[in-house]
Amino acid sequence: MTPNRQGEFQPEELLISTIADMLDGLGHVAVGASSPIPGGAALLARARSGGSLRVSMLGSEHHNAFTNGGTELFDCAAQGRIDAFFLGGGQIDGAANINLVGIGDYPQTKVRFPGSFGSAYLYFLVPRVILFREEHTPRVLVPKVDFISAPGTSEPDVYRPGGPYALVTGRCVFTFDKARKGFSLASVHPGHTVDEVAENTGFDFDVSESVDETKPPDAATLALIRGRVADEIAETYPAFATRVFGDNASVA
């Protein structure tokens, strides 16, 4: 097997692989609404876990073992039965506050997002919350969100075993430092630069002297993504699977 050079994988495949690396070794990963890339990552991590990782994917009939309807995910999370979850944001700020509601003055916002979903709860309770937003621009990564759907950190008296672990975008990976309440640049995706990340990020973040390149998926990982993961994700996200994997989803 030869290592993949840039251009031999799609951006979505890099993101799936990168997020999956953050899930290895966990016991139970849940995936919420409108999350095809995190869903793919969870399924990839499961595929190589040897059966030790459980995935509960909202909207799926095959990859969701809950039998108590919509409440079970939240009940599980409050009991500590969910190790990782994913949240996005129309806006995300440097303190990891996320805004899923809208831009401008609430309630008559000039831009309206879908809504907060379970963020105002799961962000507190799931130990490893991975923030994911493919669009990495100053309009998304802002100094301060217009509306806090869920705060990145809490006062010490608030019960909060959970919180932000990393922020993955289409350009880079940030990790979150709870003590400092801020992000650090962990790696930059192949073909992107630190300067470009800085230009496109509206909040301040830490940068070490040498920032790694995000590890590209190797041939075995790509085969798994294009085969089993593509098949499995297509059940819940058919439009995504067709767009990214095309016919690969059924033949690999």
Partner: peptide, 23 residues
């Protein structure tokens, strides 16, 4: 009264979005 309005993979809910904008 809801936690979100979403038409799955298909994008933002257009009439909801317009109604919020118009108050």
């Amino acid at each position: 009264e809801t936690a979100a309005v979403t038409i799955g993979e298909y994008g933002l809910a257009p009439r909801f979005t317009a109604a919020i904008k118009a108050g």
